[in-house]
C-alpha cells in the first residue's frame, strides 16, 4: 500500500465516521422517535432543556 492509499483510506474512514456520527445525532433528535420521544434521548431541540 502506498502513502496515497493510506491517505485515501483515512479520508474515507473519516467521512464514514462523520456520516455515522451525523446519522446517530439525527437519530437522537425527537423527529426520529416516531412520536415516542419522552424527552430522554438528549434531543438538541428541546428535550434536553427539561
Amino acid at each position: 500500500m502506498s502513502t496515497l492509499d493510506i491517505i485515501l483510506l483515512i479520508i474515507i474512514a473519516a467521512a464514514l465516521t462523520a456520516a455515522i456520527a451525523s446519522s446517530v445525532k439525527r437519530a437522537k433528535q425527537g423527529r426520529l422517535c416516531g412520536g415516542d420521544c419522552a424527552g430522554c434521548k438528549g434531543c438538541s431541540m428541546g428535550c434536553d432543556k427539561k
Partner: peptide, 11 residues
Amino acid sequence: VGNFPGVTVDR
C-alpha cells in the same frame, strides 16, 4: 430548523 419534543411538528 428542528422539531418539538415528542411530536414531528416542525419548530
